[in-house]
Design a protein around this nucleic acid. Structure first.
Length: 260
DNA sequence: ATGGCTGGTAGAACCAGA
């Protein structure tokens, strides 16, 4: 059995107490982090090693973004894609224990206005997805891709579909672009395999207080597997309680278990 | 109903998140 967690941590250095608690309580074999917000030399390797997570693949940058995969099992780094073609650190790929190809990705948020000409960030988000799609079309090994996709694909993945259909993260253009990525490889959305729609399955709530009070969540974080690997997924859960801890990330972790 | 919150880099207000 191999268990893989993914969590947008919103600054790994600030959030290490929460990460430690999560690893002690949930004990996944592998943890994929997004938004570590530090350079590689600033990453808390020693703290992870002390918890048993001595293997890591870190792709960081100063201040923003950044991803890291830490593991109790040996990792072999496979590479880092720059699907936005602008130097931002948003992906790292590894092989876990010679058994699992694991891609850790942080898809761009996309800014405020869902229009490529008015808002270049929205175009960059779509371009990122289209480059991912071309990459997915070439895959020839069972793969797991996890991370913060910054898209809530189903109507039931947001608290109010009608209210959010023009809000970046839930627009038809993003949902359709993500569907083309899915279809390029036949990815299986494990979150909805194990928690069928319209079951409650949010992974993000704004820090702004009334959003939290009204449970206005969105499902932005995902674990998608190749079809053959998806059949080996034996469990999947959202650890929602972390959103109620002190100084929480605005995202909560997902954990998927595989019979490997 | 409002994204009226949060983190990083600054070294005061910005940018970025989504």
């Amino acid at each position: 059995m191999i268990s893989v967690a993914t969590w947008n941590i919103n600054s790994v250095r600030l959030r290490m107490p929460q990460v430690e608690r999560f690893l002690r309580e949930q004990a996944p074999d592998v943890l994929c982090l997004q938004e570590i917000k530090c350079r590689e030399e600033q990453f808390p390797y020693e703290a992870f090693a002390a918890l048993g997570y001595g293997h890591s693949a870190v792709h960081g940058q100063k201040g923003y973004h950044g991803v890291a995969t830490v593991s109790r099992l040996p990792l072999r780094e496979l590479g880092r894609h720059d699907w936005q073609d602008n130097g931002e650190a948003r992906h790292v790929g590894v092989e876990v224990a010679g058994k699992l190809i694991l891609e850790n990705v942080y898809i761009p948020a996309g800014g405020d206005i869902p229009d490529r000409s008015a808002n270049p960030k929205f175009g960059q988000k779509l371009d990122f997805l289209e480059r991912m799609t071309r990459w997915a079309d070439t895959l020839d090994r069972p793969t797991l891709i996890v991370g913060d996709f910054n898209i809530a694909p189903l109507d039931c993945d947001v608290y109010d579909h009608k209210a959010l259909v023009k809000v970046v993260s839930h627009t038809p253009q993003e949902v359709e672009t993500l569907a083309r990525f899915r279809d390029a490889h036949g990815w299986v959305d494990l979150g909805r395999e194990h928690i069928p729609a319209p079951g409650r399955n949010y992974s993000w709530w704004s820090y702004r207080s009334w959003w939290r009070q009204k449970d206005q969540g969105r499902r932005l974080d995902h674990a998608w597997a190749s079809p053959e690997l998806a059949r080996q997924a034996t469990g999947h859960r959202v650890v929602e309680e972390t959103r109620h801890w002190d100084q929480p990330s605005d995202h909560v972790p997902l954990i998927t278990e595989f019979d490997l």
